[in-house]
Design a binder for these strands. Sequence first.
DNA 1: TGTATTTTTTAAAATCATTATCTTTTGGTA
DNA 2: TACCAAAAGATAATGATTTTAAAAAATACA
Lengths: 150, 150
Amino acid sequence: MEHRLERIKKQLHSQSYKLTPQREATVRVLLEHEEDHLSAEDVYLLVKEKSPEIGLATVYRTLELLSELKIVDKINFGDGVSRYDLRKEGAEHFHHHLVCIECGSVEEIEEDLLGDVEKIVETEWQFKVKDHRLTFHGICRKCQEKEDES
Amino acid sequence: MEHRLERIKKQLHSQSYKLTPQREATVRVLLEHEEDHLSAEDVYLLVKEKSPEIGLATVYRTLELLSELKIVDKINFGDGVSRYDLRKEGAEHFHHHLVCIECGSVEEIEEDLLGDVEKIVETEWQFKVKDHRLTFHGICRKCQEKEDES
DNA sequence: TGTATTTTTTAAAATCATTATCTTTTGGTA
DNA sequence: TACCAAAAGATAATGATTTTAAAAAATACA
Ligand SMILES: [Mn+2]
Ligand SMILES: [Mn+2]
Ligand SMILES: [Zn+2]
Ligand SMILES: [Zn+2]
């Protein structure tokens, strides 16, 4: 945890940004809720619990900054809000998501399943892949079991 | 063109929706701009050219309806607006996109490259895949050529 | 150490896409 | 024709995000 924070601090410094207390509080919330997919508002409310002075605009600015530095990925699951997802330690590519259309749960796949597909895209479409976004929509294990019962 | 329109008309009727003149005008615009990725506002302005009486709310309502019927897919490339993309004739899955981070162009891949990956997801994660979203971010052919020159 | 300069934050207002509401129109049916 | 439901039109409301202006904090440097 402290290690990840240090790493992020260095990433900020390398672009001559500072890790202000507000930014640190925001990053800590993201680290503490890594499994979730928080909206800006969610982050704001959680940060506020420990640092009530912080403003929503600051949270937005911080998330935007972290996004530019590729520390978080800004995603959109189709409801009206952007969600912010920490990159996994050392990951070059964004991880994949499994969104259940029954219960709305979101599962993560950290393993990169797109190696072969990217090769095809690079050779057949002459497109130099830098990153990707992959989401599957379907039915999660739990919801399948529920269906089987009924 | 007329053929696609007929098909869509049938899809609407099968759910007991009507193809009203406003809906037809909207669908025609989508068909005429299939290669683009239009926002609701874009669609509205184009529909207005031929049917000036139409209201923005109607366009939104129509796009929402087409979305529910899986005739169009609602996508989000990270700018603040939703974009609407016609499904390819007879396609079960949403097609893929190549977004250039240099020039912003968007290329489409109609071929489904995810067959193997979906099999892995179904067996190893026990997730029943119904649809997917795949976007690659990188450098398009044209922008690569520009780089080579300089 | 003191002061000018720059960065960051705050609070509030503005923006802008989308949705909701309310009224009117349309098209079918008894 | 009179009635009803679905759809459209007009416009207000909502809600996420951005912008602005002023204050505070950090930094540079004489
Ligand atoms: Mn995730
Ligand atoms: Mn497309
Ligand atoms: Zn589920
Ligand atoms: Zn390009």
